[in-house]
Design a protein around this nucleic acid. Structure first.
Length: 564
RNA sequence: GGCCCCAUCGUCUAGAGGCCCAGGACGCGGCCCUUUCAAGGCCUAAACGCGAGUUCGAAUCUCGCUGGGGUCACCA
């Protein structure tokens, strides 16, 4: 520490008395086994929650918790311009919903915000004193210096570099404030100008940074020679410096983050060395991407609705489905595991960073839908009822009213073809319920008939009337097999084939096959051509509702207006 | 443009020199089952970007090329 550096440090940070050592003493190493990882999710509160964030925190949380480590939440609010109200609430709510509740940081917002953890505060704007201590430390050692370039000066610098076709940046001869005399700095400060603080990077720097990334493998990057800004003129740190100081003081030993950070990794390594602290391990995650025409790009907040977690809430995807889809993207082994362990909570899946892909996976809603169908099928009717009701209250109030109006009936509706070994898989998400089950509810059924009529097959009004009339005599005490046998007999009586084989053998001898007759009943009861099993529908409806529907259908057939 | 990362069916991927004329899942198509639909069962089509090496032998190792992506802010 030279006298001049010390003087400069005092000039820049006269009020800063605490040293890095003081802070390191205040926040001692965690007492955890060596194998335990301390990870964090460090979002900036700049808007809606991106699915990539949930993906990254899922990874971080699993890696930490599997080894008995700690996963915490840190709010990176150093860019006050981009900050948006409500972001923190959205972040915390999403984490809770997705079973990613942090061990430390803001863990709750309702009824009141609550922060826990011994490494507080967990919000960067409240940690300014720490950044200043470390910045002062660097200035004292000649490893950082103030720079007073204005925005326009930096712009013209960049333009000159472009014109001369040299690498843009603040380095070598371009780093004008790098070796400024202290008198000049004093003068600027006296004029009331606020400098940024830049690292003094070795220049020229031919060194290479070699390290092992837990996802990307062995990395070999050129060392940093750019005098990056570590403290902005408003005294808030840049991401780079905040990352290094916070992850040091909060004793993070594994940094998981998007791989867009790879290019600045050498700077980070340099900063860890400059503050004389060990660097953590790194795991750089390839972000979820999407095709746009022929180009692949990161899922974008602006362009892609599916980037926003709100999309999944509005569509009513169970959180478990989204989680398992993401787990599958991260570790494709997951779906094999799921098949072998159909009912085990996914938290017991042995997640491995090693198994993560190195390149960006493409988002695939079709695959998500498939996973979601299976998740919904694994729910009990009661669970479907409860969960979809919560969704409907927010997203489909009229459906919520129907579900609440007759709770028992609704649960029975969701129980149709659910209790078997091969449960019905026709509900993708809660917004799909109206399409799949709407006809069970008289209001929705009537609306559908009013809008679309009955999609009856062309069998002639007289015959259809007879068929529907015959269906009126349903006895709930009848066993399913018996009922089917009875219906087959009826089919034969009406001139339909008793079974498919008979029909295939001699198609012209019949009015149609068994299914054709049943379709008339199906449409009469439901107004649809694709529904669950008719026997179960009749059982669920009950005789009264069934007969009411059949009578209505007969009337429609008679009037002819809806037959088509 | 510099630097960096990446590269197997349409998609997610398995594959760490012979087990692979490449396996699974989703999707697509077909068949079976069947009161429609869904599910389920069976089956088909579908990929190692290209070129050199190394080797008895390469999807797997090396190099080059090509292609894709990321990044070059007082944003994170």
């Amino acid at each position: 520490m030279t006298a001049i550096n010390h003087e400069l440090a005092q000039l820049l940070f006269p009020h800063v008395e605490r040293t890095p050592h003081d802070w390191l003493t205040q926040y001692p190493p965690r007492s955890l086994p060596d194998s335990a990882f301390v990870t964090r999710y460090a979002p900036s509160p700049t808007g809606f929650v991106h699915i990539g964030s949930i993906y990254a925190s899922l990874v971080a949380s699993r890696v930490a918790h599997q080894g008995g480590g700690v996963f915490f939440l840190r709010i990176e609010d150093t860019d006050k311009k981009r900050e948006q109200d409500g972001s923190i609430e959205a972040i915390v709510r999403n984490m809770i919903n997705f079973g990613l509740s942090p061990d430390e940081g803001i863990i709750q917002i309702e009824p009141e915000e609550r922060e826990v953890g011994a490494y507080a505060p967990y919000t960067q704007s409240e940690r300014v004193a720490m950044y200043e201590s470390f910045a002062k430390f660097l200035v004292e050692r000649g490893l950082a210096y103030p720079a007073f370039d204005s925005e326009t000066e930096l712009d013209s610098l960049r333009k000159q570099q472009e014109a001369q076709r040299v690498r843009p940046g603040y380095y070598g001869v371009w780093a004008r404030w790098r070796d400024a005399k202290i008198e000049r700095i004093q003068e600027k400060l006296a004029q009331g100008e606020r400098p940024v603080i830049r690292v003094r990077a070795p220049f020229p720097n031919e060194a290479r940074v070699k390290l092992h990334d837990m996802i990307k493998g062995d990395l070999d990057l050129p060392a940093n020679d750019n005098d990056a800004v570590i403290l902005k003129s408003n005294r808030l740190p840049t991401y780079h410096f905040a990352h290094v100081v916070d992850d040091t003081l909060m004793r993070v030993n594994l940094v998981t983050r998007g791989d867009e950070w790879l290019p600045s990794l050498p700077l980070h390594v340099q900063l860890f060395e400059a503050i004389e602290q060990p660097k953590p391990k790194f795991a750089h995650i390839a972000p979820i991407a999407k095709m746009e025409g022929t180009t692949k790009r990161k899922l974008s907040k602006r362009k892609d609705p599916e980037a926003d977690m709100t999309y999944y809430y509005v569509a009513g995807y169970p959180e478990q489905a989204v989680t398992e889809y993401l787990l599958n993207l991260a570790n494709s082994r997951f779906e094999d595991w799921r098949r072998e362990h159909p009912t085990t909570p996914n938290s017991e899946f042995d997640f491995k960073l090693d198994d993560m892909g190195k390149s960006s996976p493409l988002f695939d809603i079709v695959k998500l839908n498939d996973i979601s169908k299976n998740v919904v099928a694994s729910y009990t009717a009661e669970q479907v009822y409860m969960t979809s009701l919560v969704w409907a209250k927010q997203n489909n109030p009229s459906l919520a009213a129907l579900l609440e109006h007759d709770r028992d009936y609704s649960v029975r509706v969701f129980n149709v073809e659910r209790m078997s070994a091969a449960p019905r898989k026709d509900i993708v998400n809660w917004s799909d319920i109206e399409r799949a089950c709407g006809f069970f509810f008289d209001e929705l059924f009537s609306a559908s008939i009013a809008a679309n009529g009955y999609p009856f097959p062309n069998l002639g009004a007289a015959l259809m009337e007879q068929i529907i009339e015959a269906a009126r005599h349903f006895d709930p005490a009848t066993l399913k097999e018996t009922w089917v046998i009875d219906m087959r007999a009826l089919a034969e009586q009406f001139g339909f084939a008793r079974d498919n084989k008979a029909y295939k053998k001699e198609p012209t001898a019949f009015k149609g096959q068994f299914g054709d007759m049943m379709m008339v009943i199906r449409v009469a009861l439901t107004g649809k051509t694709n529904t669950p099993d008719l026997y179960e529908i009749l059982q669920t409806f009950g005789v009264e509702r069934a007969n009411r529907r059949l009578d209505q259908a007969i009337a429609a057939v008679r009037s002819g207006e809806n037959a088509r």
